[in-house]
């Protein structure tokens, strides 16, 4: 549907301009920033380090502990600081999205802490957070199978579009808006996160996954470039 006009004039499969950088948190073992347009996420990785309380330690492998949160000034109405139902869910889901690429068995009984903070939110914060966290884990020198790339595909009425903004998420014409965040292991067809908020016709899911493959390749190039640039600093 070439006739569909997006509110910011992008093509249906066009992502917002991405920026990425590593080494943004000097005191962390690894850190990264990732932005999709006005959505900015920073991630800091600490560890492997001692896990307390001790009963949470897993003698078989390291524990991955993600904490995602919106900073209070990142949204229009001030976000009350601290964990919420939403941020706890996204933290858990980010853990599931990242752990398949990590070699956790190398560091038994320890914890790898990942802190993800959203500096500015304009939809797609969890995907920006996963992209930043994946770069930060690599930057922390941890053994990984590959990077994780994440992108939110969505639907405006009946048109599948990539990387929705907040304005697009609040679209109410026709079938309304659908949000379909995905994460996958780079250069493979293994998805580590598939979420769906809204309605979508079964036939369109194939189109969504196809678009995710295409756009994740772009995300991967940005992540790779930032990591390589970060090494020579």
């Amino acid at each position: 549907m070439a006739s569909f006009k997006r509110s910011d004039g992008r093509k249906v499969n066009e992502l917002r301009p991405m920026t990425a950088k590593v080494g943004v948190v000097p005191n962390a073992d690894g850190s990264a920033l990732f932005a999709f347009g006005d959505t900015i996420a920073i991630a800091a990785v600490y560890g492997p380090r001692l896990l307390h309380p001790q009963h949470m330690q897993d003698p078989k492998q390291a524990t991955l502990r993600v904490n995602y949160d919106l900073l209070s000034f990142s949204v229009y109405d001030r976000k009350k600081p601290g964990p919420s139902r939403r941020s706890q869910e996204i933290s858990k889901m980010t853990e599931y999205a990242l752990s398949p690429v990590l070699d956790l068995k190398e560091f038994p009984s320890t914890v790898i802490d990942v802190q993800i903070y959203i500096l500015q939110a304009d939809a797609g914060t969890r995907t920006a957070g996963i992209n930043a966290a994946s770069m930060a884990l690599a930057h922390a020198g941890l053994p990984m199978k590959n990077l994780v790339c994440s992108v939110a595909i969505g639907k405006q009425d009946t048109t599948v579009v990539a990387d929705l903004t907040k304005e697009e998420e609040d679209f109410h014409e026709g079938e309304g808006a659908t949000d379909f965040p995905l994460a996958k292991i780079a250069n493979s067809d293994q998805f580590t996160l598939v979420q769906l908020d809204g309605n979508i016709a079964t036939e369109l899911v194939a189109e969504v996954l196809e678009m995710a493959n295409e756009t994740c390749a772009e995300v991967y190039e940005v992540q790779k470039k930032a990591l390589k640039a970060g090494a020579t600093q």
Binding site: D29, G30, Y46, A138, H139, A140, L142, P143, A231
Partner: peptide, 20 residues
Amino acid sequence: KYGLAEEAGMVIRVIPLTGA
């Protein structure tokens, strides 16, 4: 790992540049 890949003859290794 993320780091400096080194080819020494036929042996390949990656030297980490960052991390704990």
